[in-house]
Design a binder for these strands. Structure first.
Length: 153
DNA sequence: ACTGAGCGG
C-alpha cells in the first residue's frame, strides 16, 4: 500500500506535468510531454494546447547567446532545406535573446528539423525546437511614420 | 554585464 501511494504520487506528478505551462515542460523536451495515458481526460480538458499547429516555421529556444543565425541555419540544414534562420537579438545591445526562428521550405522538412534538433546540443546548450505560433501582426509601437530604412510589410 | 523563460520588427 505504500507502493500504491508512491504510484499515485507519481501519476499525480505526471498529470501536473502534462498540464504545466511550457516553461515547466521545458525541463524535458517537447518530445516527451505526452502523458495522456495517465490522464485520459486531459485531451478534452486541456483548454488551449500550448503546442502550435504544424508549420514550416520553427521556434527554437534554449540557444547559447553565442549562437548566430548562420550557426542556427547550419545546424538545422542537416535535416532539410532551410529558407530562413534568424537568432533574435536585442535591438540596442545587439546580443542574442537566446531564441530564434528557422523556416524550412516544406512541412516535411520542418518535421524532420524538429525530430533532428529538439533536445539536442548546439554550442553547448540543449535547445528546443517546436512549431512556431503564427507571427504577431505588425503594428508600429508609437505613431512614428514608416521607416525609410525598409519596411518589409 | 550578469540574466536561461520566452514567440521576432
Amino acid at each position: 500500500m505504500a507502493m500504491a501511494m508512491r504510484l499515485s504520487a507519481i501519476a499525480r506528478a505526471a498529470t501536473e506535468m502534462a498540464a504545466a505551462p511550457v516553461g515547466l515542460r521545458r525541463l524535458f523536451c517537447s518530445n516527451a510531454t505526452n502523458f495522456s495515458f495517465l490522464s485520459p481526460q486531459a485531451n478534452s480538458e486541456t483548454p488551449a494546447r500550448p503546442q502550435a499547429d504544424p508549420s514550416t516555421n520553427l521556434f527554437v529556444s534554449g540557444l547559447s547567446k553565442r549562437t548566430t543565425s548562420e550557426g542556427l541555419r547550419t545546424a538545422f540544414a542537416q535535416f532539410g532545406e532551410v529558407a530562413d534562420a534568424k537568432v533574435v537579438t536585442d535591438r540596442v545591445s545587439g546580443y542574442s535573446k537566446g531564441f530564434g526562428f528557422v523556416r524550412y521550405a516544406t512541412l516535411e522538412d520542418s518535421a524532420k528539423g524538429i525530430a533532428g534538433m529538439d533536445g539536442k546540443f548546439l554550442d553547448g546548450w540543449v535547445i528546443f525546437a517546436e512549431y512556431a505560433r503564427p507571427r504577431e501582426p505588425y503594428r508600429p509601437q508609437n505613431n512614428m511614420p514608416p521607416s525609410p530604412y525598409g519596411n518589409r510589410y
